[in-house]
């Protein structure tokens, strides 16, 4: 599966990238929201994992932009704890799932597998 990760924290980004590559996915990375939108257009990923607070464009705007596209692309939101309001907003805009930081890399890989299975059906 082709996965785009949008995250501005370098360490988190690379941890996610390594984990998902290990699981055999193709990973595209974006370090800010604007870059993420460009890459979504260019490479049409099967799944997007996005942080909320990022430079230029927030994760919420990425959710909104994804929902305006013809192809349905699922999106998992990465958020800090205690951000219930923002997570709720993300769901209203059309997010599919969320993971809170601190996160466990292995739990993330299980959730991603679920989306991978759904897309194969």
């Amino acid at each position: 599966m082709k996965i785009l990760i949008a995250e501005d924290d370098d360490l988190t980004l690379r941890t996610l990238e390594m984990r998902l590559k290990k699981d055999g996915h193709e990973v595209i990375i974006a370090r800010d929201g604007r870059d993420a939108l460009v890459r979504i257009e260019d490479s049409s990923p099967d799944l997007v994992i996005s942080d909320i607070m990022m430079p230029y464009t927030s994760g919420l705007e990425i959710v909104a932009a994804l929902r305006e596209r013809v192809k349905y692309t699922p999106i998992i939101i990465l958020s800090g704890m205690g951000q219930e309001d923002v997570v709720l907003e993300a769901f209203q805009l059309g997010a599919d799932d969320f993971i809170t930081k601190p996160f466990s890399p292995s739990e993330l890989s299980i959730r991603v597998r679920r989306f991978a299975m759904a897309s194969q059906k």
Partner: peptide
């Protein structure tokens, strides 16, 4: 500071 960004 980020704790403040989303705190209700």
């Amino acid at each position: 500071f980020r704790q403040l960004a989303s705190a209700s």
